[in-house]
Nucleic acid binder design. Sequence first.
RNA 1: GCUAGGGUGGCGGAGCGGUAACGCGCUGGUCUCGAAAACCAGUGGGCUUAAAGCCCGUGUGGGUUCGAAUCCCACCCCUAGCGCCA
Length: 420
Amino acid sequence: MIDLEIIRKKPEIVEEALKKRNIDFPFKDLIEYDKQYRAKLRELEKLRHEKNLLTLRFPKEENKEKLRREIEEIDFKIKSLEKEVDSLKEKRDYLLHRLPNIPHHSVPYGRDSSENVVVRVVGEPKKFSFRPKAHYELAEELGIVDFERGTKLAGAGFYMLKGKGAILERALINFMLDTHKSKGYKEIFPPILILGSGAFGTGHLPKFSEDMYKIEGEDLWLLPTAELALVNIHANETLNYKDLPLYYTAYTPCFRKEAGRHIDLKGVLRVHQFNKVELVKITSPESSYDELEKLVNDAEEILKKLGIPYRVVMLCTGDLGFASAKTYDIEAWFPSQNKYVEVSSCSNCEEFQARRANIKFVGGGRKEPEYVHTLNGSGLAIGRTFAALLENYQQEDGSILIPEVLRKYTGFDVIERPSS
RNA sequence: GCUAGGGUGGCGGAGCGGUAACGCGCUGGUCUCGAAAACCAGUGGGCUUAAAGCCCGUGUGGGUUCGAAUCCCACCCCUAGCGCCA
């Protein structure tokens, strides 16, 4: 959430941000509602003051009936003004809560994802002496992923892992958690459901409610990413500067409705439920951009160790997520498609989420508590990493070689086609 | 799920229809070579901020009343016991 002080005193900053993001937003209305709201609020408070004075006089008053009538009159005006004030605040907040973050000045201008900037390319795509198969072909032939049965159980967009596929999934999760743990991230196993207030804190509500699964009749939502849980660990808390930065990592399943999105990605790449290991940092404002670079490196480390070629892309202003001020995507190489596919997205949200979730810190030479900066990144999406691994490690006979670092987690070196 | 008790500032804890005591902690000031102690002030949110000031705030939302932390209703959460249970 953007600071109302900025909206009031330096609206041009927000206007420029909206232009850069290439989105249509009724910002002028927001300013106008806020202005009217404050004017009416002043009026209302004046009336309430008058009423308080009269009501205070009541016990000693001789003519109680007359006084009662006077109060009743003011009360009438108060009631109607209250309605106006509430309605104006509601209109203002409706827009305020949907206003995206301001892009960092280092973010390149661009209209959409086609104008993202490749920052670095790591690893050589392997040359295959045969036509590399897609991960879903390999998986079905190997009998490690069952799309049909997944659909039978939960409907379209769900799949089921079997045998060595299930073990490989689990191995990837443990490998990633262990790797991050060694870099100082504290491992968390959070609830998979989160309250609406938590989803508001990260910026997923109110704007993206249609992307999330909700428990019927309750204010509880299935995590679309562990980011919601990890960021909200410290909601409504004031931290100490000396304890920052905080590093958290968690494995959770993630649930997304993907409403209105057509399935342009086959197999396990775009589904309603997937596993992910997430990284979250809570930092001081002065260190958050250094921490973002390190966060990206920590996520890259996974692909390096697995030996999967990838590239790092900086999102342009037009492709930036709602809460983010700056985002790097990490994209793994998919030989069958001859292109890179996103397996991680690492963002610095600065104080945008901290303001919504009310996370502050004291110390560090500050007189007043200030908002922390929050960062999040996938480290990595398991399903997509699983798919990239199959594609990059496929052999001519259709078997999959397991990367060295994973073998102590899988307990096997290769996934072979069933003899049947 | 049932029954009972309970939700008041960072914490403890009063008030039980007349507009939120007090203590601790924390911050600043005085004092000091420095610190402690002591003393003074501040320590929920908002509006206005030149200052003074004003409004809201006792788990949440309604209701009664001139006036609600206090009375009534609904919901949420916590604790204990019972039930159920991986």
